[in-house]
Simulated assay, not measured.
Amino acid sequence: MLYLLPTPIGNLSDVSFHSLEILKICEIILCEDTRVSKKLLNLLENRFELNFADKEFVSVHSHNEEKITTEISDILRDKICVYMSDAGMPCISDPGVYLVRHAQNLGIAYEVISGSNATLLAAAASGIVKKEFVFLSFLPNTGKERTKAIENALNLAYPAIIYESPKRILSLIEAIRDLDENRQIFLIKEATKKFEKKFWGKVKDVANALKDENLSGEWSVVIDKNPANSQEKISLDDINNLDIPPKQKAKLIAKITGDSVKDIYNILTK
């Protein structure tokens, strides 16, 4: 049995009761970095007066995930195993996808525990995301690929969510400003931690605010959709309510319905 278990992204109290119960009964802990996971378990033991002794730790990260997963197939099937990210939800900008596919292919039972996720937190806190959004994770670090990725984020028909490091956050916001200074944007630094801070408004104003800000910490960025690239469909009522001549209305309606422009025009002018 395999459990994919999210870990707190900052505030230790965000760990769920369900997660603690699974950690108590599991035999094998698969993790990105054994040192990080052991430290987290030690903190959880002290905070909640628990005992996570006698656990076997196996390092599973993006560079060895395929090899290790294949080697431990029998263990995944026969023992209670947990996969933990260093912080946040496995498979979301973190290893774990190969584990899930491997379990699916071999018929190994698996379960994803709900919990901390910086993407959804940023979406909810942004005041920008209403329904759909596009998660872009970390953009390329430098060069033409990064420039192209930023342009792509600004041209989307849905809000885009990006993760960024403190080293590149200011240059990212300035690059967005240079392309569209009035685009609405939301930033959150060190989400759920003691020094969490939020910024929102037009990107030109946010860029100015960041110049005097301590940029240390992990950042999530939400960029509003491109208003010129909306995928919302125009209805016949929308066209009928336009203050334009009947002939133009008839042409627009004909494009949607496929009916004769002349017939539509005659109906509009009766």
Rank of each mutant, 00 (worst) to 15 (best):
P6Y: 08
P8G: 04
I22R: 14
L23A: 05
T34K: 13
R35P: 01
V36T: 14
L40S: 07
L41E: 10
L41C: 07
N46C: 07
F52M: 05
D54W: 05
D54K: 15
F57K: 08
S59Y: 04
I68M: 11
E71N: 12
I72M: 07
I72L: 04
D74V: 01
R77D: 04
I80N: 12
Y83H: 05
S85A: 11
C91M: 15
I92T: 02
S93K: 04
V97I: 13
R101T: 10
Q104F: 00
L106N: 15
N117P: 08
A122V: 03
K130R: 13
K131G: 14
E132V: 13
F133L: 08
L136S: 14
S137Q: 12
L139F: 00
N141Q: 15
E145D: 14
E145N: 15
R146G: 01
K148Q: 15
K148P: 06
N152D: 12
P159Q: 03
I161R: 11
Y163H: 08
R168S: 07
S171L: 10
E174A: 06
R177L: 02
Q184W: 10
K189A: 09
K193V: 04
K194A: 12
G201I: 08
K204V: 06
L210T: 06
E213F: 00
L215P: 06
I239T: 03
P245A: 12
L252T: 01
L252S: 03
I253Q: 11
T257Y: 05
S260P: 04
Y265C: 10
T269V: 14
